[in-house]
């Protein structure tokens, strides 16, 4: 091996930077989806690497379900400020209040309702491209996604009719109303992300590290107990997501492996309290990352169906 050689992280990084710059050059109004989760934290570092010393030439966008871990929101806002980036937040709550979408009877998770909220934000700001931190190793339908994933004017993904993607020549051309989702981390795995966090000394929200938390058992997972219901007389936003009397309670030492919101994130019992520990834990893990996501368990094709409808 000569000295002109890239190791796996350097290789993944240079490809991702190339994708970021293609986005900046080819689209008029791109945005980066930033939730404060580990994958989007890596995206922002890649944006810095692609565009510094200039400003990151696109705003950050987050769609809140209203059930977020408070730690995540605080982290998200602080990180955006540090980077001098514009942060746009749109909420499922607002979409519901304006009557643009309705929850199904008994629907507690806001996961599906993020779709109209995201499409609404795309329309409001006329975004032609959203850069996301999704990875192909997360899930079977994601494994089929292109780096540049074309969406029609309804925001839909057509998996049978994807544009061929050859070499590093990305076809970014769109007609009015059409949209692109771009995934620079497509080829990264969960371990790659954590190794990159370690290499770049990136700060991540504390809930990734082990901590004590009140949890309850549902659907074979430990779910966090939602915050107490504050607004008296208001409907409880967590109705249905609170433990029923029959469900087992416990105070556990846990952490999150992947973050959705409080309703759909299973906590894993773990003593990993450093990035090194996390990497060791994943290397030895016997379930996949999304095995702790309640939103993917509903059926074999859960993700495929949501993606076709315009999900991230």
């Amino acid at each position: 091996m000569n000295s002109y050689h890239l190791d796996h992280l350097q290789y993944l990084e240079t490809d991702a930077i190339h994708v970021m710059r293609e986005v900046a050059a080819e689209f008029e109004r791109p945005a980066i989806l930033f939730s404060g989760g580990k994958d989007s934290i890596c995206l922002l570092r890649l944006a810095e690497k692609a565009f510094r010393p200039s400003d990151i030439p696109m705003p950050l966008l987050n769609i809140e379900t209203g059930h977020e871990f408070p730690e995540l929101i605080g982290f998200r806002d602080r990180r955006a400020k540090e980077l001098g980036a514009k942060l746009i937040v749109r909420t499922v709550e607002d979409v519901l209040a304006r009557g643009l979408a309705t929850a199904a009877p008994g629907e507690v998770s806001r996961n599906r309702l993020q779709i109209p909220a995201l499409l609404g934000a795309i329309e409001e700001f006329r975004f032609d491209c959203c850069v996301g931190g999704a990875r192909r190793d997360e899930e079977k339908a994601r494994a089929k996604e292109r780096f540049f994933s074309f969406r029609d004017s309804f925001g839909q993904w057509d998996p049978k009719n994807q544009r061929p993607e050859i070499w590093n020549l990305y076809n970014a051309r769109l007609n009015a109303g059409e949209n692109m989702r771009v995934f620079p981390l497509s080829n990264w795995t969960e371990v790659d992300v954590w190794e990159y966090v370690r290499k770049e000394k990136l700060e991540v929200p504390g809930i990734y590290f082990s901590h004590e938390r009140e949890c309850f058992r549902r659907g074979g997972q430990w779910l966090p107990i939602p915050p107490p219901h504050a607004g008296a007389g208001q409907p409880d936003p967590y109705a249905g997501a609170r433990p029923k009397p029959a469900e087992k309670h416990a105070k556990l030492v846990v952490r999150v492996r992947t973050i959705a919101d409080m309703i759909s994130t299973g906590m894993i019992e773990s003593r990993a309290d450093s990035v090194d520990d996390i990497i060791a834990e994943i290397a030895a893990a016997r379930v996949t990352e999304r095995g702790t996501r309640a939103d993917d368990k509903s059926s074999e094709a859960a993700m495929e169906d949501r993606k076709k409808a315009g999900y991230f």
């Binding site: 899930e139 494994a143 089929k144 998996p159 049978k160 497509s186 074999e300 094709a301 495929e304």
Partner: peptide, 22 residues
């Protein structure tokens, strides 16, 4: 690897599926 519903139904691979291992 056959991630899409139509693929599982027909038992064929329609699109490129990417896998990662080490």
């Amino acid at each position: 690897t056959d991630g899409l519903r139509a693929e599982r139904e027909q038992g064929i691979t329609i699109d490129v599926a990417y896998r990662y291992f080490a």
